[in-house]
């Protein structure tokens, strides 16, 4: 398997992880890339946003807890886009006490299994920093951090970078790391200043397109639609198309 494994990660809530996961993966699928996206948040918001609402349906929980193959849990939700739902037992992973670091290695091992042909596997992480996130970090090659342009998000990013650096040090490999500015409000001065601070610390690591805050992005999950399906051609859809191209071509600020 040679898929690039991307953890969409930020322990802060409300920064646009799921919105990014839904719309970026859809945009990449539209560009012809074969994508698997894993809902790694027990709240199951990613699945709901893609129109899969059965709370009892098993998914990555069964893969991690019972050793079922990932391939068995794939749900084709759109052309080129497969979803693995969280499943009702995913939260149990956070309570696993036995196994030391091995309990953090469950997802990595599960992703190694099987002969799938994805170009990318995206992991939509929960807004926390527990065992699930550790699993995502053990498994991922790349980290994509959605970031809002407010001060507290900057504080959260500092905490997150501490965790990432510990993993890099322990695993003896650097992650490919990129940030995406989401929910960006270009008219606010604080937005520009936060972006400026981030640019200082992450030169060449911020995807070139900012995802601007719009009401449409907040509306489409309730219809189980991506922004491309909910309001084709709108500003947010254009933002995500540009972001997908940035992601593929490595275009950074």
């Amino acid at each position: 398997m040679s898929a690039r494994i991307v953890a969409v990660l930020n322990q802060k809530g409300g920064v646009g992880k799921t919105t990014t996961s839904v719309n970026l993966t859809y945009a990449l699928a539209k560009l012809g890339k074969k994508i698997t996206v894993i809902d790694f948040d027990p709240q199951s918001h990613l699945a709901v946003s893609l129109g899969v609402v059965d709370p009892q349906k098993s998914g990555i929980d069964k893969v991690l807890l019972e050793g079922v193959s990932l391939t068995q849990q794939l749900i084709p939700v759109r052309k080129n886009l497969n979803l693995v739902v969280a499943g009702p037992r995913l939260q149990e992973i956070e309570q696993l006490m036995d196994g030391g670091a091995r309990r953090g290695d469950l997802l990595r091992k599960a992703l190694l299994d099987g002969n799938r042909d994805e170009d990318f596997i995206f992991i939509d992480c929960p807004p926390s920093s527990g065992v699930l996130v550790a699993n995502a970090l053990f498994a991922a090659d790349e980290i994509l951090v959605p970031m809002t342009s407010d001060y507290l998000a900057l504080q959260g990013l500092s905490h997150l970078m501490g965790t990432i650096k510990k993993f890099e040090s322990a695993l003896k490999r650097p992650y490919k790391f990129s940030l995406v500015m989401s929910r960006y409000i270009p008219t606010r001065r604080i937005s520009k200043e936060v972006l400026s601070v981030i640019q200082k610390y992450f030169p060449g690591q911020i995807l070139a397109t900012t995802i601007r805050e719009t009401a449409l992005l907040a509306e489409c999950p309730s219809f189980g639609k991506t922004i491309f399906e909910y309001r084709p051609g709108c500003r947010s859809a254009r933002d995500f198309t540009a972001l997908a191209k940035d992601f593929l071509e490595g275009r950074m600020m």
Partner: peptide, 9 residues
């Protein structure tokens, strides 16, 4: 202090 991923280190 959360049940942080840092607990692995």
């Amino acid at each position: 202090v959360d049940q942080a991923a840092s607990g692995f280190f």
